[in-house]
Simulated scan of single mutants.
Amino acid sequence: MAEKATILFVINSLVGGGAERVLTTILGASAPWRDRYDVHLALLDDEPRAYAVPEWITVAQLDAGHRLGASIAQLRRLVGRLNPDAALAFLTRANVATAVAMAGRGRPWLISERVNTSAHLGSGAGAIVARAMVRFAYPRARHVIAVSDGVVDDLVQNFGVARDRVSAIANPVDHDAIAAQAAAPCPLAIDGDYVVAAGRLVPNKNFALLVDAFAASGLPHRLVIMGEGPERASLEAQIAAKGLTERVLLPGFVANPFAVLARARLFAMPSNAEGFPNGLVEAMACGLPVVATNCASGPSEILADLPRESVVDARQVPAGALVPPNDVAAFASALREVASEPRRTASANAARQRSLDYGVAQATERYWRRIDAALQPPRTSGSPASPYPLSSGIAR
Rank of each mutant, 00 (worst) to 15 (best):
A2Q: 13
A2H: 14
E3V: 14
A5L: 15
A5K: 15
S13W: 04
L14Q: 10
L23A: 00
I26P: 01
S30Q: 07
W33N: 03
W33F: 14
R34M: 04
R34K: 09
D35T: 12
R36E: 13
R36M: 02
V39N: 00
L41P: 01
L43Q: 08
A50K: 12
P54Q: 08
A64Q: 04
G65I: 12
L68R: 08
G69H: 10
L75Q: 08
L75Y: 07
R76D: 11
R77H: 10
L78H: 07
L78Y: 08
D85G: 13
A87Q: 05
A94W: 05
N95H: 00
N95R: 01
V96M: 03
T98M: 03
A101V: 06
A103G: 02
A103Q: 13
G104W: 10
G104E: 09
E113T: 03
L121D: 06
G122D: 12
I128W: 13
V129E: 06
A132H: 12
D149Y: 04
G150I: 06
V151M: 05
V151C: 13
D164S: 14
S167T: 15
A170M: 12
A170G: 15
V173C: 15
Q181F: 06
A182S: 14
A182D: 11
A183N: 06
A183L: 11
P185C: 10
C186E: 13
L188N: 08
A197Y: 02
V202Q: 12
V202R: 07
P203E: 09
K205S: 03
L219A: 11
A237E: 09
I239Y: 01
A241S: 15
L244Y: 03
R247M: 02
V248K: 04
P251H: 04
G252M: 05
A255Y: 01
P257M: 06
A259N: 07
V260K: 01
R263N: 04
A264D: 02
S271N: 08
E274H: 11
F276Q: 06
N278H: 12
L280N: 11
E282P: 12
M284P: 03
C286I: 11
G287N: 09
G287V: 09
P289S: 05
N294I: 04
S297N: 07
S300Q: 06
I302H: 11
L303C: 05
L303H: 10
R308G: 09
R308F: 07
V317L: 07
A319K: 04
A321K: 06
L322F: 06
A329C: 04
F331N: 07
A332D: 08
L335D: 03
E337Y: 13
V338K: 05
R343S: 11
R343L: 14
A346Q: 15
D357W: 12
Y358Q: 11
G359I: 09
A363E: 07
T364I: 12
T364A: 15
W368F: 11
I371N: 05
A373R: 15
A373Q: 14
L375K: 03
P378H: 01
R379I: 00
L390P: 00
S391Q: 00
S392Q: 00
